[in-house]
Amino acid sequence: MTDQQAEARSYLSEEMIAEFKAAFDMFDADGGGDISVKELGTVMRMLGQTPTKEELDAIIEEVDEDGSGTIDFEEFLVMMVRQ
Rank of each mutant, 00 (worst) to 15 (best):
T2G: 14
T2S: 14
D3V: 11
Q4F: 05
Q5K: 11
Q5G: 10
A6T: 09
A6P: 14
A6S: 11
A6H: 09
A6C: 06
A6W: 08
E7H: 04
A8F: 02
A8M: 08
S10C: 03
S10F: 04
Y11D: 03
Y11H: 08
S13T: 12
E14D: 14
E15I: 09
E15T: 09
E15S: 05
I17N: 03
I17C: 07
A18P: 01
E19S: 08
E19V: 04
E19P: 00
F20D: 01
F20E: 00
F20N: 01
A22T: 09
A22Y: 02
F24G: 00
F24H: 00
D25G: 05
M26I: 01
M26W: 04
F27S: 09
F27L: 13
D28Q: 06
A29C: 13
D30W: 02
G31S: 04
G31K: 10
G31Q: 02
G32V: 07
G32K: 03
G32Y: 02
V37I: 15
V37K: 03
K38H: 12
K38P: 05
K38R: 10
E39R: 12
E39A: 09
E39V: 08
E39L: 08
V43R: 00
R45G: 14
M46N: 07
M46W: 06
L47Y: 03
L47W: 01
G48F: 01
G48S: 05
G48A: 04
Q49W: 06
Q49H: 15
T50I: 01
K53R: 12
K53Y: 07
L56H: 07
L56Q: 06
D57I: 03
D57W: 02
A58R: 10
A58K: 15
I60S: 06
I60M: 15
I60D: 03
E61K: 13
E62V: 08
V63C: 08
V63P: 03
D64W: 08
D64K: 08
E65C: 11
E65K: 02
E65P: 07
D66R: 08
G67M: 15
G67W: 06
S68N: 05
S68L: 11
S68D: 11
S68E: 03
S68T: 12
G69D: 08
G69K: 09
T70C: 13
I71L: 11
D72E: 08
D72G: 15
D72M: 10
F73T: 00
E75A: 08
E75C: 09
E75K: 03
L77K: 07
V78S: 14
V78F: 09
V78W: 07
M79W: 03
M80C: 08
M80N: 03
R82M: 09
